[in-house]
């Protein structure tokens, strides 16, 4: 149990995320096959395994450097739209983490909020467009609301909100990305981007829970 995450803990989170995404690769791809170009699982697994390798090879000095490394690695290895989007999230987060040796709940909330803003600006997506914003938005709000609680509880709340947001994408009609070409036919499928967002936040919460 800890109230803030240092470089080692954040590295553990990303290692766990890489493992989770590798394990969930087939399911993400299956979700993407229904309404996209069936590459999300493979792309995310490839990107985060590159992240894990990068962090193992050259451990960063502080959380800001870590986020920057993660962002740049995702940009150049993911391939699909998730690359620039998650890349932007981490680069924005790096800005908010600058000068902080560890990140507590309010600091993490700041980082995630900035990251979400970056994604919204980059992807021009709004809540309800059936995108990762639908999972990240509720998570940021939950983290904000729970910022006073111990870190593990706050992150668990964020992950739970993300999960609910993810599930809520099922009936939505996609308005962004490849899925938007399907129009009404995209309804009835869970959004793969929202799913990977939930998986990342769940991995974060699990890491903080120890």
């Amino acid at each position: 149990m800890t109230d803030s995450l240092d470089v080692a803990a954040l590295t553990a989170w990303l290692d766990r995320a890489a493992a989770v995404l590798e394990r969930e690769k087939a399911r993400l791809t299956e979700l993407d096959a229904a309404i996209g170009d069936s590459d999300h699982g493979v792309n995310m697994a490839r990107g985060f395994s590159a992240v894990a390798a990068k962090l193992a090879g050259a451990p960063p000095a502080d959380p800001a450097a870590l986020f920057k490394t993660v962002g740049m690695t995702l940009i150049s290895t993911v391939g699909g739209a998730a690359g620039p989007l998650y890349g932007t999230l981490f680069l924005q987060a790096a800005g908010k983490a600058t000068g902080k040796p560890t990140l507590d709940a309010p600091a993490l909330a700041e980082c995630l909020k900035a990251g979400l803003a970056g994604i919204v600006q980059r992807g021009k997506a709004e809540p309800g467009d059936k995108t990762m914003v639908d999972a990240l938005g509720p998570a940021v709000a939950a983290l904000d609301a729970a910022a006073g609680a111990p870190l593990p509880q706050a992150l668990a709340a964020a992950a739970a909100a993300a999960e609910a947001g993810m599930a809520a994408t099922i009936p939505l009609v996609a308005r962004k990305g490849r899925a938007s070409y399907l129009g009404e036919r995209s309804a009835g499928h869970q959004d793969p981007g929202a799913t990977s967002s939930f998986l990342l936040l769940k991995a974060l919460a699990d890491t903080a829970a120890g």
């Binding site: 590459d39 150049s76 391939g79 699909g80 739209a81 690359g83 490849r178």
Partner: peptide, 30 residues
Amino acid sequence: ELGTDATAIVDAVTAVDGPAGTVVLMDLGS
């Protein structure tokens, strides 16, 4: 593999950059 890479775009623009500048055309999505 299919996909795009912002850092590769940076490299490409830097490689051809000149006083008249550069026009970038993209296919879709990412």
